[in-house]
């Protein structure tokens, strides 16, 4: 049983466990877009990067594909990791601004501007649908085609496949098909909408415990961040980070 250190905590896991699984076991949240527990890890979204040191040098590695090994020293939220993730998410927002999940990540990670040209794509090629179709539904009706900038998820010859049972599993696992609050036609690339909402619960209920998963408004202005002034809801609603 390999023993590794994650953020200074020593943890012993079973052989064959990945670093991502080990970290989640410890309750450390690591963002992912292409990972699903029931599927073979793919390592394409790169959001689950962690800083790994093997004694000589520190590198960033995708934790979903990294087997837990003896003596591994892992940092899941070092400055380097955070910066890399933030820059990654900034690009994700530019590519697929219509996705709620990506916009939520951007808000949570502190992405306050998107400097890239927006592409308004509907797919980030995480491969979850392709793997689900093949590994869980045993159908193999969809796959990837092309290379580089022409790569896409497709059916052979773009024709309806005989193998597709229309089970909808592909839709179910898709991380980006849920639209953001303002819908896909929103004018701005970056939403950051919830940052402009003052924390309703905190103001109304004072210090009452909230058992819900804290929303970003809560994280930014809530009771856990005494250094940040709670911003009252203003009438002239402007978004932060948009020119």
């Amino acid at each position: 049983m390999p023993t590794l250190t994650i953020n200074g905590i020593e943890v012993q896991v079973e052989k064959g466990t990945t670093v991502l699984e080990a970290a989640r076991f410890l309750g450390i949240p690591i963002p992912t877009l292409c990972h699903d527990d029931g599927l073979v890890p793919y390592g394409a979204c790169r959001l689950c990067l962690v800083e790994v040191s093997n004694g000589r040098k520190q590198t960033l590695q995708a934790s979903c594909c990294l087997p837990a090994e003896d003596g591994l020293k892992v940092l899941t939220h070092s400055a380097r990791v955070e910066r890399a993730r933030r820059l990654l998410v900034e690009m994700y927002v530019a590519v697929c601004p219509s996705s709620k999940r990506i916009q939520d990540m951007a808000s949570a990670m502190g992405v306050r501007q998107v400097r890239y040209q927006a592409k308004h794509e509907t797919c980030i090629q995480c491969g979850l649908c392709v793997r689900t179709c093949e590994q869980q539904m045993m159908a193999g009706a969809i796959g990837f085609s092309g290379r580089g900038l022409n790569r896409s998820v497709s059916r052979p010859f773009d024709m309806t496949s005989e193998l597709c049972r229309q089970c909808g599993a592909c839709l179910y696992v898709c991380p980006v098909c849920e639209s953001r609050c303002q819908g896909p036609q929103a004018e701005s690339t970056l939403c950051n909408g919830c940052l402009n909402i003052s924390t309703v619960c905190f103001q109304s209920y004072d210090n009452a415990m909230c058992f819900l998963e804290p929303c970003h408004a809560c994280e930014i202005g809530g009771p856990f961040r005494a250094d940040v002034q709670v911003k009252p809801r203003s009438k002239d609603f402007t978004r932060i980070g948009e020119k």
Binding site: G140, G143, S145, S154, P156
Partner: peptide, 8 residues
């Protein structure tokens, strides 16, 4: 070999 893979 699945057609999806041949096509890919």
């Amino acid at each position: 070999v699945p057609l999806t893979e041949v096509y890919q």
